[in-house]
Simulated assay, not measured.
Amino acid sequence: MSTTAVETFTDVIRSRRSARAFLPDPVPADDIRGVLEDAQRAPSHSNTQPWEVHVFSGDARDRLSAAMLKAFEAGQMSPDFTTTYGADDSVHVRRSQQAGAVLYGAMGIAREDTDGRTKAIAENLRFYGAPHVALLFVPELGDVVRAANDVGMYAQNFLLSLTARGYHGVPQGMHGLFADTVRAHLGLPADLKLLYGISFGTADPEASVNRLDIGRAPLDEHIVLHDTSL
């Protein structure tokens, strides 16, 4: 592979950001199709391709948002998968808390501002103003772990393709908290499980929340080397 190709690929990966404020401008249909075709090239166990993806725009997007917000306001959450991160003092919880502090700080929401936090959470279900949202479902194949992993690789292709084309997306686990509501809204069977959604479009360049870099842990927190030198 040429040096230029490596640099371009690395630039795409390292420039990807999760936007949380979008411009209303729709993404052209050719670009959406291109993103979906790129995502479709994701690897999957025995080529099962265990993803079903529903893309919403325009009025369909607004109706979906209204249904999810109604369930949110009524406290009717119905996740298909656990939403916990382990023990309260685990490294994963600490990372989540640190990211939340940075995000809410950028939005000017204090930790004790319960009403402000509730309104901010609800913006997930308005898709942060993005003109499009894709919901990613997985069928009940075995214990679902392999299939869910495959959908994760699909989502990564989706997000990187958006970045390469000058757009942004944000994967949103909160969408998965309203699985029954979404299935009822779409008339889907109970054995099609909702993992999460990806809101996407053009990030608002003026929004301070879009200029954040949450960062990543150093490699030695995650990687164990066996007869390997770096």
Rank of each mutant, 00 (worst) to 15 (best):
P24A: 00
L212G: 06
D115A: 15
G142S: 11
D30H: 13
I223A: 15
A134L: 07
T163D: 01
S46Q: 12
V170N: 15
D31W: 05
T10G: 00
A179T: 02
R183G: 08
A42V: 09
G215W: 01
R95S: 10
L188Q: 11
L194R: 10
P26R: 04
F22S: 05
R94I: 01
G176F: 02
H185T: 01
G116I: 01
F22R: 00
V151W: 04
V12F: 03
Y196M: 15
D25L: 06
S161W: 06
A29H: 11
G58E: 03
D38Y: 07
F56W: 05
F9A: 15
G129F: 07
N157Q: 15
R17W: 02
G86Q: 05
F200W: 00
G176N: 05
D30K: 13
L125K: 04
G173Y: 03
F81G: 10
R165Q: 12
K119G: 08
R117V: 04
L195Y: 07
D180S: 14
H168W: 01
S96G: 08
L230F: 15
V144M: 15
G129N: 03
R94A: 15
Q49M: 00
G100N: 14
V145D: 12
R117N: 05
V102D: 06
T114H: 11
R61L: 14
N47H: 14
A21P: 03
P79Y: 00
S90H: 09
V53N: 10
P218R: 11
A120S: 03
L159M: 14
L135M: 11
T83D: 10
P139N: 11
L125R: 02
D143L: 11
F81L: 14
H175A: 12
F72M: 12
F56A: 01
G116T: 01
V145Q: 08
F22N: 06
D115K: 13
F9T: 13
R111Q: 12
Y85F: 14
E52F: 08
T84G: 12
L194H: 13
M77I: 15
V55F: 03
R216N: 10
S44A: 04
H175G: 10
R117M: 08
V145Y: 12
D80I: 02
R94K: 12
A67W: 05
F9C: 11
A60I: 02
H54Q: 04
